[in-house]
């Protein structure tokens, strides 16, 4: 039997059925000129920096910039355009599609009551400059971004993992990282406490309390294929007479015996 092909760079759950002719609709990308405030901001931004793309989506400005400009553009947004708060900073993993990460900076202007999102695309092994000198809130967000995606950030004051343990292997939010953890994650405690060579000594059944060995007939029984205790697992199944398969699981519903409690419903 052939194993079904599973792409290694994206092991997340997929829809099991999609109509052949189904085309996903798109949220429209509106022109910047639709909003006066954003139009002025983009005008000012264009006079200073080269931007790749700018549009509005669901009432927020989205600007694509070159990753090398991120610090200067954010400083410009803060000091000249009065976007004084960095509310969120993270990345989206597009490695399986284009080999890139999309880093986004979610900005808020208190005086203009506007929100803008600045984005840049970086390659897998490309580092990005820290925006910590402009916004202190980037300190923890950049650490989280590194922790979850493995994106390196230059000139960060304290560049360490933040949510996962420091000796964790792999970056959990990448699409190539399985939901239930990879091998290193499954053996993390054993590796750390006893060392890697103890994996075989401990064995999967001790590591995972819910692990059932299908060949172990001493401790487990297989439903529908019962063998005597301790017998080889592929030996002839036993006949169990006490099990009556014809017994009904649900009694037949009898309307005459039942009583309707709430007649209004």
């Amino acid at each position: 039997m052939m194993r079904p092909y599973v792409p290694k760079d994206n092991v997340q759950k997929r829809s099991y059925y999609t109509d052949r002719f189904w085309v996903a609709p798109k949220i429209e990308e509106e022109d910047v000129s639709k909003d006066e405030v954003f139009a002025k901001d983009v005008e000012a931004l264009k006079s200073r920096f080269e931007i790749e793309k700018a549009f509005l989506q669901r009432g927020q400005l989205i600007v694509y910039i070159d990753p090398s400009l991120n610090l200067e553009v954010l400083r410009f947004f803060k000091e000249e355009l009065q976007y004084d708060m960095l509310m969120e900073l993270s990345a989206v993993d597009y490695l399986s599609r284009s080999g890139e990460f999309e880093v986004f900076y979610q900005l808020l202007s208190l005086s203009k009551r506007k929100r803008a999102r600045i984005k840049c695309l970086i390659k897998e092994d490309q580092a990005i400059e820290s925006v910590n000198p402009v916004f202190r809130s980037a300190d923890w967000s950049e650490r989280e971004m590194f922790d979850m995606f493995g994106i390196k950030v230059n000139n960060h004051p304290y560049f360490k993992r933040i949510l996962m343990p420091e000796d964790w292997v792999g970056y959990p939010l990448r699409k190539s990282y399985p939901l239930h953890g990879d091998e290193a994650a499954q053996w993390y405690e054993i590796d750390k406490i006893f060392g890697k060579e103890y994996r075989e000594v401990v064995g999967p059944e001790i590591r995972d309390a819910a692990w059932v060995d299908p060949k172990d007939t001493e401790n487990f029984a297989r439903y529908g294929h019962e063998v005597p205790k301790g017998a080889p697992y592929d030996s002839e199944p036993m006949e169990i007479e006490s099990f009556n398969e014809d017994a009904p699981l649900v009694e037949t519903f009898d309307l005459k015996k039942s009583k309707i409690v709430d007649r209004d419903r």
Partner: peptide, 13 residues
Amino acid sequence: QGMRPPVGEVYVP
């Protein structure tokens, strides 16, 4: 199967 929203992104505070 679940609902299929349109392609795009939002940030909603």
